[in-house]
């Protein structure tokens, strides 16, 4: 197992290297550069030249790439071209923990709501309970964050005054964004759990378990559910990587200083190092999440072995 993990982690290196090459090239292919303009105004060529020299962008591209990779080896993601008094390390270091907190709490909520309702829906298949759960799941899946967020603010912050409107300070501030983000994913989890559990319930080994005379709760809990979780975990891994690195809409609506906005803004600003930094962070979390999912497989299904 340990060997397998090490081998997989070594495979990260070429993947991340490819990410740097693609991102580095792509952001430079988009027309427009980081020093073209101030608002509506175009910067004079003299000024552009100064800035390009300052940030080594007057060098040949391959040299810029090598410089970037050299700094990356020293864990230095470079300066931000937009927030010039901060480095990309500063920005990601400040924003990622906030996004991660929001992401983990939201996914926790999603699992806590999604799993049980999926199980219940499967057990009470084709009853009003199942239909009710299906309706709720489709409802929360269909209402986009950009609608749910402001509606929750309107009801719980402005009308009832129970919770703060926005920002990320106390646990009370966490509730609305976590609910906004979590419910959408809980719906997905519920549907997956229901479908997968129903499928597993038809398997031979479930019949065997029942034939052994096990109680239904044990059959479901120990044998069916564990196996049924495989598609759910497969789904959760990449989703977790995505929400932990920030969600643009929820962070914007609730004024949360997370990483999500940087994914979008850095491209608009042509802030090359920040684009690279956010892409690398996401890539690293994604490959890690996938590895974690694969390890979990072995744990959930005794038939899967990594040698």
């Amino acid at each position: 197992m340990i060997q397998y993990i090490i081998r997989r982690m070594l495979q990260f290196i070429p993947v991340l290297l490819a990410v740097t090459i693609f991102t580095f090239t792509l952001v430079r292919i988009i027309p427009g550069g980081p020093f073209d303009r101030i608002g509506d105004k175009t910067l004079p060529p003299e000024i552009r030249a100064n800035l390009e020299a300052k940030y080594h962008m007057d060098e040949p591209v391959w040299q810029q790439y090598l410089r970037y990779m050299w700094n990356l080896l020293h864990l230095d993601l470079g300066p931000s071209l937009k927030f010039r008094t901060q480095t990309v390390n500063d920005i990601i270091g400040g924003a990622l923990p906030v996004s991660a907190q929001l992401g983990v709490l939201s996914m926790a909520l999603a699992v806590v709501i999604g799993l049980p309702s999926g199980i219940i829906a499967a057990l009470y298949r084709n009853t009003p309970i199942d239909y009710g759960a299906t309706f709720l799941a489709i409802f929360f899946r269909s209402v986009p964050n950009i609608v749910l967020g402001p509606v929750l603010i309107l009801i719980f912050a402005l009308k009832l005054g129970w919770l703060p409107v926005a920002r990320w300070e106390t646990p009370a501030h966490w509730v609305l964004p976590v609910v906004t983000l979590g419910t959408a994913y809980s719906a997905g989890i519920a549907r997956l759990t229901r479908g997968s559990l129903l499928e597993v319930m038809g398997e031979d080994y479930i019949r065997t378990a029942r034939a052994k005379g096990l109680r239904e709760a044990v059959v479901i809990g120990r044998h069916a559910l564990k196996n049924a979780l495989i598609p759910v975990v497969t789904y959760l891994g990449p989703v977790l990587a995505a929400v932990v690195t920030g969600t643009f809409v929820v962070e914007t609506i609730f004024g949360i200083p997370g990483l999500g906005r940087h994914f979008v803004d850095s491209v608009n600003n042509r802030d090359y190092p920040l684009v690279m930094g956010t892409a690398l962070t996401y890539a690293l979390l994604l490959v890690s999440a996938n590895l974690f999912v694969d390890i979990t497989y072995a744990w959930l299904d005794p038939r899967i072995r990594y040698e």
């Binding site: 709490l105 926790a108 806590v112 919770l163 106390t170 646990p171 966490w174 976590v178």
Partner: peptide, 28 residues
């Protein structure tokens, strides 16, 4: 492993449930 899953989920539930208590505010 099952105990671990229960513990992890349990702690997540607890932390999720702990959010809306308005009496005490921790200010950082």
């Amino acid at each position: 492993s099952i105990a671990l899953v229960v513990a992890v989920i349990g702690s997540i539930v607890l932390s999720a449930c702990a959010q809306p208590t308005p009496e005490v505010i921790e200010k950082e």
